[in-house]
């Protein structure tokens, strides 16, 4: 390990500690704001460290810099302006939108590495399994969260949307995801199977969220939030970066517990909400 790698590992470890303590502090109203700032500090440390790493590494091309800088500047500008201007009552749909793009970013990273490496020889299972999970979970939360955003903001009708043949379509989509999984993991030289996996998971996200009523949306957003955490974690396996694995798994687990508590506070069960959506039996208040 070079000096830079050692420093980077330690900085990532410290930022992971910041996230954990930050979440811990957010459990009480008195310390919540500082908890969020602490977790933000951890985030800034991680971003500065990766920036130093890629500069020191020197492999990044000029167009690579342009793509990265343009994406970051536009993204930060859009995110901050949206977050500052949104009326307090519209915050849940904004969180859902931010969650959607997080899942989209995780899926994009998986697609990038898969198409880059699949052209070569066969891939190790240690790579192909996480890349599949990353793309499929990321794709599902991307489209699912966008529908949730639409339902909360009224662009998509809040009442459960159920159409004839939706169960059949569900089945087909699940089969497509399984086929994509088998082909991506078993025959990782053909990049079209990742496209199949992505498209199927995007449709799956729609089918999962459309039949759920608007009143249950906050719980669904929280669940999709936990999913995005897992997608980010698997993206960490794909690019072999521990901070993504740690932070993603942390959000995946903490988000799951939070989802259960939110459902409990509304006198609903998560299983009921999701199964109610797929089964179509359950009316939303």
């Amino acid at each position: 390990m070079s000096l830079l790698e050692t420093c980077a590992s330690l900085i990532y470890l410290i930022s992971a500690v910041c996230y954990v303590i930050g979440v811990h502090m957010m459990r009480s109203p008195k310390t919540a704001k500082n908890g969020n700032l602490l977790s933000g500090l951890g985030m800034i440390m991680a971003v500065v460290m990766i920036l130093i790493e890629i500069i020191a590494d020197g492999k990044i091309s000029f167009p690579g810099w342009i793509a990265l800088a343009a994406g970051l500047i536009l993204g930060i500008g859009y995110g901050v302006i949206k977050a500052r201007k949104v009326p307090m009552t519209d915050v849940p749909q904004l969180v859902s939108l931010f969650n959607a793009v997080g899942g989209g970013a995780a899926a994009t990273i998986g697609i990038f590495d898969y198409t880059r490496l699949a052209a070569g020889s066969g891939l190790a299972l240690a790579f192909s399994i996480p890349v599949f999970l990353d793309v499929v979970i990321g794709g599902t939360t991307f489209s699912g969260s966008l529908i949730a955003t639409g339902k909360l903001s009224g662009h998509v009708p809040g009442k459960p949307i159920i159409f004839p043949g939706s169960k059949l379509l569900n089945g087909l989509v699940v089969i497509a995801i399984i086929v994509a999984a088998v082909m991506m993991i078993g025959f990782p030289t053909n990049i079209w199977y990742i496209v199949l996996g992505l498209v199927a998971s995007l449709i799956f996200g729609l089918l999962m969220t459309l039949p759920i009523g608007g009143a249950d949306m906050p719980v669904v957003v929280s669940l999709l939030n936990a999913f995005t955490g897992l997608a980010v974690s698997f993206a960490g396996f794909v690019i072999n970066n521990q901070i993504l694995i740690i932070a993603g798994a942390l959000v995946g687990a903490a988000g799951t517990i939070l989802t259960l508590q939110m459902a409990e506070a509304m006198n609903r069960s998560v299983a009921n909400i999701i199964a109610g959506g797929f089964g179509g039996g359950d009316e939303a208040s």
């Binding site: 996230y19 908890g35 977790s39 971003v47 790493e53 492999k59 970051l72 939030n225 993603g248």
Partner: peptide
């Protein structure tokens, strides 16, 4: 707020964006 805070933490995926930009 907790949901939103957790949502921000998985924004760490931005580190992954740096990594792939360096390989593009």
């Amino acid at each position: 707020p907790m949901m939103s805070g957790a949502n921000a933490i998985h924004g760490v995926v931005v580190v992954g964006a740096f990594v792939i930009a360096a390989e593009a």
